[in-house]
Write a protein that binds this DNA or RNA. Sequence first.
DNA 1: GTGGTTCTAGTCACCACAAAATCGA
DNA 2: TCTCGATTTTGTGGTGACTAGAACC
Length: 371
Amino acid sequence: MLKQENGGGDGSAGCNNWPRICDTCRVSACTVYCRADSAYLCAGCDARVHAANQVASRHERVWVCEACERAPAAFLCKADAASLCAACDADIHSANPLASRHHRVPIPPISGYGAPAGEEGFLTRGGEEEEEFMDEEDEEEAASWLLLNPMKNNNNLNNGFLFNGEVDEYLDLMDGGHSQFTDQYGQNQQQQQYGVVSHKSYGGDSVVPVQCGEGKTHQLQQQQQQAQHFQLGLDFEPSKAAYSYSASISQSVSISSMDVGVVPESTMNDVSISHLRTPKGTIDLFSGPALQLPCQLTPMDREARVLRYREKKKTRKFEKTIRYASRKAYAETRPRIKGRFAKRTDVEAEVDQMFSTTLMTETAYSIVPSY
DNA sequence: GTGGTTCTAGTCACCACAAAATCGA
DNA sequence: TCTCGATTTTGTGGTGACTAGAACC
């Protein structure tokens, strides 16, 4: 595979402003991005590589963003006559109200050498090629985050970005709100911002910091309010894509505790978004009554959201979050048979009891392991 | 290019039980 | 409205089974 090595590597604008170099010749600036090869290619190499055989000629490619020249273009702005990646599209078209009204359409991938694919091209893009798009997840997420597009929810028409109904865990719309994820991912900042102390006590059992400041509550209320009035301002042709749609997406996204740090119950007291909570770590984002999805955002709001999204991405953690340290400690000491918890014999229980009692007397307060 | 085998990496269910949550009196 | 006891639910980690993809022939 020709994985991009030059530049940011994340498909975004990266740390410098130089155009991305062709992954093949490493001389010319790239003009297209081949998803199948996960490679950025210049016009010459594109022609050479994808005209080589029939299979290669079927590779779907997209133009590279004309603004940053470093990421696959996702949208074509008719007003600017420019192909832009999701990030640049967001940046440019959130600059002012006028720009935000630019008519933009998702760019169909170039399928078959030399001839851009029409609708059919990206409608037929099947599951087998789906994984190839994971490299652009970043842009995709940002795009989905910004462009709540009915077409996107159509599983097919995502400018080649296939969502299959999956909901990005960072999708902050619910959070608009304050998602449970926010509590974790923004934990550090929030702790500093609100002066929240990490609460660790024997009884409390909390490893995940408890956040209960007034400021926090106030912010949450504001965010909830904002979520209610959240509106998407993208001005795609109303006749084709009415963005003031109210989606009724019954979509349960099950996320294991490995992926997601769930905020302790105590935190939820502050968050009166009861419908967000579902048992067993299941994030039931859209079940229940039809979700009135936001429709109009001011450019500033949008920009703020993009920034917040990017900040979250930077600080996101995939480590498992321990909600109850005591349970963890206990689980670690429990007898196992082939990894499974085994029944504890009376003797073991007695020894354990003695041990814990000793520990308690030695350390007035229990030691909650730090992770 | 195709098909079969092997290897590697990732995911998930399983288990017992203390702690937390919920419910009713 | 508060308290208390009983009941139900949740969360915890190591291991093996399973699967998908890569590598090789």
